[in-house]
Write a protein that binds this DNA or RNA. Structure first.
Lengths: 329, 329
DNA sequence: TTGAAAGCGATACCAG
DNA sequence: CTGGTATCGCTTTCAA
């Protein structure tokens, strides 16, 4: 039996062959547990069947969920992910080099941004122009790139509606102080901005007065616990606010944890029946004073969607950016 | 200029060639930004220069650190990691299949264990026997495999010594109730056991009386926050213990968080100046009553070491298992 | 219905 | 010193 014959049969061009030939080939393949060599196939096809997954290490809580969704999608099409993380733009550039040397068929980008605002976004945009298949995730830095993001507006809408449904009327928004600056700094803080818009819109539509309370995040906001400590220190801003809110929508799960801890350390600080909702993960925490409604972010779905977009792009199909809100409970 | 000539020059067999030839080749290579195709090289060498990285998703807090260490080591030798996570033994088997189909040159294993104790450890042991290069991390399931683990004994020794150095004499150990069963269940709870041994040994050597206090973890202990809630509910076991400890060595960071929260919610519960030390990561938490000394686990180093072991094994060198304790502060 | 042959990009061997 | 040639495993084309 010749190599091409075997090949044809194994790859489904069965019409051309006699039943007997087919049977013999199939049996032999099974017996030998034949598995095609993907690298060799790729050499011929000028592909690697490898996808590069670049992640900013500050987003480490997202990694596990994202990669799970991603691998489900891509291994089903016999692609495999090469996963690399970076902590700086230099790191990122080096990892990118590694991936290109590997001839990856596509790239997931999760930009690093230096304290000065420097990033590799421009380079990525050029690469995309030059034909590299690339999808950006959890960010809006690379011009023109298809992206998968979290829909913070939808998250805020759902969070606010949830508290309204629980009967709350005085619902505050507790967010960080840069929620309004996102218009001016491209790529940064837009999630807080959209979140705020979603909150305001929902409150207004319900005929309720929005009250936005912002805490300042001091120093490097990517440092461990930056939001936690800032929120803790500013807990009174929320709990002693003149508008006397009975509930609050939060922008960050970390800030929720801080208020939960503050409230249990200061039993009279939070009004009876205070409610909190948030579009984020909240770490397991003991709390009796406050009712917490966490709408988890669909991180795994983001991973799946990103893989799908990337594979579609590689296959030459049209792709469109997606923003993913909270799952219906 | 012929292909082999170029090849030879580019790969450092320079002695054989005239200076002029060398120069021409090198210049052309630079100008064209020549990068060898690793897949093609691998086809000929019957290698893939790919390493499979299988991680149990329950260990997600370790992923970011581990992969960073791992990638540093392996990209330096022009290997790249394919990263896959599993949540069950079936998942793990499927991922393993994916990696083998990819002809990975080596495998990092982080076993899943079902509630019945079932695992793929046997299969991995066979694969190793059959010549697959494989390194186990954070576990002791695969018979005969070289592994990189955390040295919980050293962690406990350092934790205990630290509290002794701070002047504490009544130092308890706060751990979960299965710390003694590890002798009987291979692969499970051995970290708690070693940790306990390290604590006892250090206390005895210092002429102090060890007091081990254990909390029961109810239900599925891999569920989110299992240790946190169990420790919280059993906080009194530690803080009201008849031996009146002034400090405690903890086995888990999560349990530390629980006690910190409990103590700030119950201000008189912890004695003045209570000290806690732990060989683990502790999430950022506001706390004034308790002095916390966290000795971080060297997760990134584990990643590096695992990559080194695997690459050594692939290169045919002898490899030996490593246990990594806390870094000297 | 089948198989011979070319080629993907790199490497190894050996003859000139 | 230099280059022709075979080879890795797979896919495609075309002739028999």
């Amino acid at each position: 039996m010749s190599i091409p014959t075997v090949h044809q049969v194994l790859n489904g061009y069965n019409v051309r062959f006699s039943a007997e030939t087919r049977k013999k080939v199939l049996e032999a393949a099974k017996e030998l547990d034949y598995r095609p060599n993907i690298a060799a196939r790729g050499l011929r096809a000028r592909k690697s069947f490898l996808l590069g997954l670049q992640f900013n290490a500050v987003n480490y809580p997202l990694i596990a969920g994202f990669t799970r969704g991603f691998q489900q999608m891509c291994t089903a099409q016999s692609y495999a992910p090469i996963f690399l993380t970076h902590v700086s733009t230099e790191d990122e550039a080096e990892n990118c080099r590694t991936l290109i040397d590997r001839r990856v068929d596509g790239l997931i980008v999760n930009c690093a941004v230096g304290t000065t605002g420097a990033s590799n976004a421009g380079r990525f945009a050029e690469m995309r122009q030059a034909g590299t298949h690339l999808v950006e995730v959890f960010g809006r830095f690379v011009d023109g790139a298809p992206r998968v993001t979290l829909d913070y507006r939808a998250g805020a809408v759902a969070s606010t509606e949830l508290l309204i449904a629980k009967g709350h009327k005085k619902i505050a928004l507790f967010t960080h102080s840069d929620y309004r600056t996102s218009e001016r700094i491209p790529g940064l803080y837009w999630t807080a901005w959209e979140h705020w818009r979603g909150y305001e819109e929902t409150m207004r539509q319900a005929g309720l007065e929005p009250t936005t309370i912002a805490y300042q995040v001091s120093g490097d906001r990517t440092r461990e616990g930056a939001h936690y400590f800032s929120a803790y220190e500013n807990a009174k801003l929320l709990l002693n606010h003149p508008a006397k809110p009975t509930a609050a929508v939060f922008y960050r799960g970390e800030a929720v944890e801080a208020i939960l801890h503050y409230a249990s350390a200061n039993p009279s600080a939070a009004p009876e029946g205070f409610g909190i909702s948030v579009f984020d993960r909240v770490a397991p925490t003991h709390s009796d004073a406050i009712s917490l409604y966490a709408l988890p972010q669909p991180i795994e779905d983001v991973g799946q969607a990103a893989a799908k977009l990337l594979l579609d792009s590689i296959a030459g199909r049209e792709v469109e950016s997606i923003a993913m809100g909270p799952k219906k409970p």
